[in-house]
Design a protein around this nucleic acid. Structure first.
Lengths: 355, 355
DNA sequence: CTTTCTTATGAAACTGGTTTCAGTATAAAT
DNA sequence: ATTTATACTGAAACCAGTTTCATAAGAAAG
C-alpha cells in the first residue's frame, strides 16, 4: 500500500508514526530501517531505496527522544550566563549559538543573575538532563556544584570567568589582570593619582583579576589602593549608576578617574555623571572593560579594554563541540588566554589641577 | 546492604544507576520505585520510606530522557527570536526565561537573524525535538513552516510579530498601528510635514503595521507617504546607521523628521547624525519604537513609543505554560494587544524654518 | 465464616528507537 | 565441487523509565 495523498503526509507528522510503521510498509524489519537512517552503506541499495521511498512519502522523522535514550546524546548544550540582557553576554551567546547550530547542537539558555544558587541549580539541572556539553560564562568562585561536573562525563568549558581550580579545567578568557593593569597604567600615565575601582562581586574571578591588575599598576607607583576608592555593585548598568552616584558624592576627595571592571557598569557611571553634571572626561576620566558594541557609540565613546567577546564565545563553542565529537580529546586541557587591548576613545583626559 | 560512603554516593551520580538498581536495593519492583517517584500516595508508607531511603543514600535521579520518552514531555520551550543581541529580544527572552523556570521548563534559544529559512529550520527542529511549547518572537509573514505547528499538538504563541493567519493563533503584541499613528501624529503636531519612515523588512507584521499607522496619520493631513521617504534596512543598529546615512544624504529635500520602526535602528540613525554633524533634534527629529532601556540613557534620550517588552515576554510565557499544563485550555484563543504609549524625551523639536 | 471491596504490589507490555548476534545467500578462492 | 569470506537481514536484547493489568493480602460487610 502506498501513501500518496497530502492528508496522509500530514498525518505522518501529527500521528507520530514510528519506525515500526515504516518497517511494515517497506516490508523490512525495524533494524533495517534504523540502518538506512544511520549506516546506509550497510544496506543493500535495492532495500535502501525501498525504505527511503517510504520514509519520503510518509515524511517520517525518527523520534529524537528515543534516539537520545539510546545513543546517550541529546544535542543540547547548556549555556550559563549571568544576564542575557547584558550586551556582553548577548554577544557571547549569539556566537556560541552560531557555532553550535553549525554542528547540530542546540542551546539551553540559563540566566543566573549572578546568584550562586541559580548557578548551582542550573549545573545540577543540566547534568541531570544529560546535556552534551556545558558552557559556564558566569561562574562564581565559591560555586558549590562544580564537583558534579567533574564527576559527570559531560564536557564543559569556562568562558571569561574561571573557577577556583582552573588548572583542571578548560577555559577561554581574556588576560584580565593584564587588562586591569593596562587600564590603570593608562590613567596613571595621564597624570591621575586618585583612581577609583568600580567592580562587581568579589566572588567572580574576572573582577578579582582586573582588580589585581589595577592594584599592581598602582603599587608600581607606590600608590596602594585606598579602601574608600573601592566600589562594588551589581554587574549591570544600574549597579554602575548607583555606585557612580556614591563616587560622585565623595566631594573634595573625589577621584579624578575611575577604572570600571566592565563597560556596562561604566555606562551606568556615565549616566550618573550626566545626572550630577560632572563632565567626562574633564572632571572625571573613565575606563571600562569588555568593549561592548555600545561603547563605540558616538554618544558614548568609552575608552575601554577590549576583549573580543565574539571570539571568546565562538572559540569556547568550538572547543566544546570538538570535545563532544572527539571523546579522546577530552583529557587534554584547552586553556586559552586572549591578550587584552586598550581602546582609547573619549572618556579620558589628564586631571584638572584643583585647589 | 546499605550505601553510606561518599565514594558510593559519587558513583551514583557518575555511574548512572537506574531504577532497577534502586528497586533491587530496596527489595521492590521497579514499578514501585516509579510509583514512589510519581504517585507516592499509591505506595504503602512503609514501602515508600524504604525506597525513599535508598533513593536518598544513592542520590538517584531518574533519567529524564527515558522519562520524556514515556510521558511525552521534554520540559523544553523553544524561543525563536531574530537576534538576542538586540536589547529588545534580550529583555523579552530574559522575562520568558524567568516565568518558565518557575514552572520547571527550560529555554531553547534560537536566533533567526530575521531570515525566513532559519525560522523554518528552527520550527521544524523544535517540532521534531518535541518541545513542550514554542514562542515565536520574530516570525516572518511569509514563513512556510507554520503549518507544522498547526498540525502538531505543540502549543505555541506569537509575541510582538504576528503571522498572516493571526485569527487562528495565540499572541501577545502591542498595537503597532496605533503606535505608529501616535508617533507620526506627534511629529505632525510639532509642525513636521516631511517625515520619513525608517523600518525593517516588509515581511514582518510589526513593521507593516507601524507603517500603516504612519500612513494613516499622514493621510489624515492629506500628506500621502512619499516613496523617497521610505527606508527599510536590517532591523538592527547597523541597519539604522546605514539607512540613516542615506536619509541624511538627501540634501535639500531631506526630511525634517524620521519615524523609526524600532529603537535599535533609531540609535543607529542617531549615530549617523552624529557622524554627519546633523543636530538632533534641531535639524532632525527622531521618534523610535519599543522603548528599550538604552533609549532612556541620558546620552540618548530617544523619544519613542513604549511597548513594555518585559510584560510582553512574561505574559507570553505565562500563557504558554498555562496551555502546556492545562490541555483543555488549548483551544481557547488568547489574543492580547497592549496599548502603546508615547514617551517624549529629547529627540524631537519643531522643524526649523528653512529657505 | 463467607463474600466483597480496597489497597498494595509485581510481571509484563509499552514509549521508539539502536545494536548485537546469528543466520542466510551470494561471491570468491581452493 | 567444496570451502571460505563477505554482504544483508531480522530476531531479540537493550536504553531507562511509565503504565496497565492481574493477583494477593487485608479490611469491611453480610
Amino acid at each position: 500500500m502506498k501513501i500518496v495523498s497530502k492528508e496522509d503526509a500530514m498525518k505522518a507528522v501529527k500521528k507520530n508514526l514510528t519506525i515500526n510503521d515504516i518497517a511494515a510498509q517497506a516490508g523490512v524489519s525495524k533494524a533495517t530501517v534504523s540502518r538506512v537512517l544511520n549506516t546506509p552503506e550497510k544496506v543493500a541499495e535495492k532495500t535502501r531505496n525501498r525504505v527511503l521511498a517510504v520514509i519520503r512519502t510518509t515524511n517520517y522523522r525518527p523520534n529524537p527522544l528515543a534516539r537520545a535514550l539510546n545513543i546517550q546524546r541529546t544535542g543540547i548544550i547548556g549555556v550559563i550566563v549571568s544576564d542575557i540582557t547584558n550586551p556582553f553576554y548577548a554577544l557571547m551567546v549569539r556566537n556560541i549559538e552560531e557555532v553550535c547550530r553549525a554542528h547540530h547542537h542546540y542551546i539551553f539558555l540559563c540566566n543566573t543573575d549572578g546568584r550562586r544558587e541559580e548557578e548551582e541549580f542550573y549545573i545540577r539541572s543540566l547534568v541531570e538532563k544529560k546535556a552534551d556539553g556545558i558552557i559556564l560564562g558566569a561562574t562564581q568562585m565559591d560555586s558549590k556544584n562544580l564537583h558534579l561536573l567533574y564527576e559527570s562525563e559531560i564536557p564543559f568549558i569556562f568562558v571569561s570567568r574561571l573557577p577556583q581550580e582552573r588548572e583542571r579545567c578548560d577555559y577561554v578568557t581574556a588576560d584580565n589582570e593584564q587588562g586591569g593593569y593596562m587600564a590603570t597604567q593608562y590613567l596613571l600615565s595621564l597624570g591621575h593619582t586618585r583612581i577609583a575601582y568600580l567592580g562587581g562581586r568579589w566572588e567572580t574571578s574576572s573582577n578579582l583579576e582586573r582588580f589585581e591588575g589595577y592594584k599592581k599598576a598602582l603599587m608600581e607607583r607606590d600608590l596602594p589602593p585606598q579602601e574608600e576608592y573601592l566600589f562594588s555593585g551589581e554587574f549591570r548598568m544600574e549597579g554602575g549608576y548607583e555606585e557612580g552616584l556614591r563616587i560622585l558624592a565623595l566631594g573634595k576627595n573625589r577621584p579624578t578617574a575611575v577604572f570600571c571592571a566592565n563597560d556596562y557598569m561604566a555606562i551606568g557611571l556615565l549616566e550618573a555623571c550626566r545626572e550630577r553634571r560632572v563632565k567626562v572626561p574633564e572632571e572625571l576620566s573613565i575606563v571600562g572593560f569588555d568593549d561592548i558594541p555600545l561603547s563605540a557609540l558616538k554618544s558614548i565613546q568609552l575608552t575601554t579594554v577590549s576583549q573580543s567577546v565574539a571570539e571568546l564565545g565562538a572559540l569556547s563553542g568550538k572547543i566544546l563541540i570538538d570535545k563532544i565529537l572527539n571523546p579522546q580529546k577530552r583529557n587534554v586541557r584547552q586553556q586559552v588566554v586572549f591578550p587584552p587591548k586598550l581602546v582609547v576613545r573619549k572618556t579620558c583626559a589628564p586631571p584638572k589641577i584643583r585647589e
